[in-house]
Structure formats: structure tokens, C-alpha cells
Design a protein around this nucleic acid. Structure first.
Lengths: 174, 174
DNA sequence: AGAGTGATGTCAGGTGCTGACATCGACACG
DNA sequence: CGTGTCGATGTCAGCACCTGACATCACTCT
């Protein structure tokens, strides 16, 4: 994973072959594909952790809390999961933003997160429609907050920006 | 495009080679790649129209309307764009849902839509954060509404479901 | 009639990815 | 201590995706 990120960053995703990554990592091309499904997945291996952070925090919210108050701490938990890896996140995101193929994969991971949150909200009694839009909105807020947090001009921490995004959403919807 | 959809539907995306599609369409594999960037793109060629419908409706809203009241007719326009192609949408979506690679591409198109709406909202004076979360929320609502509309058990038209999704969002956020 | 233009065909080649089989070291068991 | 199992890795062959370069052909403008 480190070798791949380095190479993608140095010379670009397209200009890097799997053989290059394997060589730098000291293994064979074939064993690369045994660890990662494809050339893109090597950058997204840890995304499961983000999703579990979200989902567990949602599940931990009091059962009688309404959806919105249950989602806020879930967003907090997701933000905290990344809080102390900002430099790495920047580096990684620079590579992703430069490559449509990697953006696709990132969106798929976020869609999985949305689906997981939708399921969690359904378990709290929300309708399919309500759970779906709520999950989409929260993940969208996370995405926007993350993008701002990555910006070098931004000095607030991710959790703060995430809260601000939720507040903006609430303001714009009403 | 017709040949590709047929084949993807008949035997699956992975089990279909570009040579198969080209043969059924009566052209060469090389010609296929001159018309479509890759094997997936052939299913998403018309997505620009959806985005245009959204964006133009947003631009057409009165300049002094607040974001939410400007976004509602944009969502309507997007829904209307698909309204009379429900059978085709079902068929196409069945293929997409069965193939992660196609879901990725679909999400990328929706992300482009989100970006375009964000730009439109910024032009109306919203902050980056506010425009971003609003666009994400509306596109999310569209996605959820579309999914419900595709469901055979659903008998409302897309526009109605879209409106309902917005109402649910408003309800859950407040 | 001839030149230009755009779409298509043909060919060669690189890269991503997979299946099948071989190798090797760690460990358990008798 | 010898042996068998098992998981990780290496090796190799091969298909499918995608691209660049050049040729061909129909069509159009002059």
C-alpha cells in the first residue's frame, strides 16, 4: 500500500504499472493481485474502518432518539476516525482527485457507507425513503466537510467542519 | 448502445466482450472504442442530458429565490427528463445493479451532477459549504427517488416520488 | 477531376487481471 | 525426528481491454 501510494504520487496512477508497485514492495505482480482485487483497491483498503465507525456510532445512539440526533454523533465518529491522519489523507486525495478511475472507486466506497447507514436507520423505524435521503444527506455532508478539511487554507478540525456542514444543511433545507 | 445493453442484459457485463458488442452492431472493436471511451461508458452516453436538465432549471429559477425553492424545480426537471423512459431505465438499472464496475461509473456521473449543481448554487451566492451540502442532498434525494421509482411495486411517477423525497428530507432534518 | 475530410478497418502491442500448478517455510502430530 | 498439512508466494500461460499508427473508402467542395 505504501509503495503504491508513493508511485501514484510520484508519476501518476496511469503511468504506474502493477509490476512497478510489486517490484518496489519486493513481491511479484501475482501476489499484488492476491492482496488487492485490482490496481485501484490498494488505496481503499482501510475504508471499512470508516464505515464501521459511522455505523457503530449510529447503533450506539439511544433507540428513542430521532434520526437527526442519532446521525450527528455518527458523523462525529467518522470524522474522528480520520482526525489524526490529515497529511496522509491529503496525499492520498491528491492522487484520487487526479484520476477519474480512483474517484469512481471512492464513490463506490461512499455509496456502501450510505447503504449501511440507510440500513441502520431503517432499523430505527424510518421508511425506506426517509432513511435513504437522510443517509445520503449525511454522507454528502461528510464528503463536503472532508473536501474543505483537506484544503490547506482550512484550519478547523474535521469534526468541527462536519458539524458546520450539518448546520448548513439544516439552514438551507428550512 | 442498443447492442451493448442487450448483451449485458442477456449474459451479463463481464461475460460480454467488446468484440461481441461490435459484432452485433456490425462494426469493428476499434470503432467501438472510437465512439465510447471504455466498455462501461456505452451505457452512460445520455447522462449529459440529465445534468443539463437539472442545471438549466436551476439557472432558470428567479435570482432572488432561496436555494431550496430553486432546487425543487431543478429536481422536477431532472425527473421529467426520465419520466417517459421507465422501461428502458428499469432494464438498464438491472444491468448496473448487477455490476460494481457499472455502479462506479453511475456514481461518477452523479458526482458530476452534484458538482454542476454546486457551481450553480455558488453562483447564487451560497458559500462553498452550503452549496455543497445542498447539492449533495438534492442529488441524494434524486437517487433515492429514482430507486423507488424503478421498483415494480411503485406506481407513482418519478416527479411525485422526488417531491416526496424532498419532503422526507425536510422532515428528517428539522 | 482532384484534393481534402471524416469515419472506418487493420494490425501490433502494452497492461490489467486470472487460472493452474509448483515451491517453500511454519507448524502439528505421531 | 520424520512427515503431512497449510498458507503464502513464485512461475507461467493466456484472455480481454484499450491505444497508437497507418491504410482505405465514401463524400464533398472547388
Amino acid at each position: 500500500m505504501a509503495a503504491a501510494l508513493e508511485l501514484y504520487d510520484e508519476r501518476g496512477f496511469e503511468q504506474t504499472t502493477v509490476a512497478d508497485i510489486a517490484e518496489r514492495a519486493g513481491v511479484t505482480e501475482r501476489t499484488f493481485f492476491r492482496h488487492f482485487g485490482d490496481k485501484r483497491e490498494v488505496l481503499f483498503d482501510r475504508d471499512g474502518g470508516l464505515q464501521t465507525a459511522f455505523v457503530e456510532a449510529l447503533a450506539a445512539a439511544p433507540a428513542d432518539a430521532d434520526a437527526w440526533t442519532a446521525l450527528a454523533p455518527a458523523l462525529d465518529a467518522g470524522c474522528d476516525f480520520l482526525a489524526d491522519r490529515r497529511d496522509h489523507a491529503r496525499r492520498r486525495q491528491r492522487v484520487i482527485d487526479a484520476t477519474p478511475g480512483l474517484q469512481e472507486r471512492e464513490l463506490l466506497k461512499l455509496a456502501a457507507l450510505t447503504a449501511a447507514l440507510t440500513a441502520g436507520l431503517r432499523g430505527r423505524g424510518l421508511s425506506e425513503l426517509a432513511a435513504g435521503v437522510a443517509a445520503e444527506a449525511v454522507v454528502g455532508a461528510f464528503r463536503v466537510a472532508f473536501t474543505r478539511w483537506i484544503d490547506p487554507a482550512e484550519d478547523r478540525d474535521l469534526r468541527t467542519v462536519g458539524r458546520a456542514a450539518l448546520a448548513e444543511l439544516r439552514a438551507v433545507v428550512s
